[in-house]
Amino acid sequence: MAIKLKTLSDQEHLCQGNLACAGCSQILGLRQVLKVLGENTLVVNTTGCMAVITQMGVPKVPHFHVLFENAAAVASGIDDALKQQGRRDQYKLLVVGGDGGTADIGLASLSGAIERGQDFIYICFDNESYMNTGGQRSGTTPFAARTSTTPVGTVSRGEARLPALRKNMVEIIAAHNIPYAASTAIGYPMDFLGKVEKAAQVRGPSYIHCHAPCPPGWGVDSELVIEASKLAVQTGAVLLYEIENGERRITKKVSKRKPIADYLKLQARFRHILDDEKLIEQLQREVDAGFEALTARC
């Protein structure tokens, strides 16, 4: 049953008013996700932006703010306790983390929980750096991006780690032979929510990696956040696909990809490289190669 805008619940599971920055994309994401999952959802939240945003009674479902690196482990305990008590089927268990809590400090606990086959939906809202602490680089920060720990200086031009070495979380998780893993982007809500619906039907772990632009961190105007997310997909910087029982499928086919510069120039974090044609060309080749590689596997 594919999710449709018309049939999306009118019920809100987040209170109005929260601590998110103007234009924050991930709080939009959580609002929509909870509409799909419904009121019998238990939320476990890593330390990170979302934990700050949802403080002080914002969610209307039980919401547990845990430590930075242990959300998947706490969720494991909830999962097993509810199973032991014979009431697991009554609830959806959602784990929410950022790229820090998921790809970096929390990767071991997430890997362990997935390997054990714990039953939860894990959503990583990836804003590509540690925004909660003011924008330091993470394992998913893109090449050349300016962050507060990869500054632009006389001998440095932002994040130096090559594009191909950036952590590919969907593939890392997929390597666990997880029943369902997917990448999505905040600019394509129906793609996102369709995947949430699929993930919710999985018995066992499921993982969704959601590209979530950050206005202050990326230097994107608040009103252009959705535009930035769409451009990420339309340029091929972010590929929307899913891996269902080992089968890869591209869920958003882009017939004519836009040049990567269109996506980069919207963001102040890439301003220092926009004049460097050679580098832009190199980045375009990386994007093309990423697209080819995925297409070859689908």
């Binding site: 238990l42 476990v44 547990f64 845990v66 430590l67 690196e69 242990n70 998947a72 482990a73 706490v74 969720a75 494991s76 305990g77 909830i78 999962d79 097993d80 306790a81 509810l82 199973k83 032991q84 008590q85 071991a108 606990s109 890997s111 362990g112 929980a113 390997e115 054990r116």
Partner: peptide, 23 residues
């Protein structure tokens, strides 16, 4: 149920999870 965790950090974290649903 035994949660066969991958670290002590996760061991106590899993206990926290079980505890918050009453086990």
């Amino acid at each position: 149920r035994m949660v066969k965790v991958e670290s002590e950090h996760s061991a106590l974290s899993a206990c926290c999870g079980a505890s918050i649903v009453g086990s």
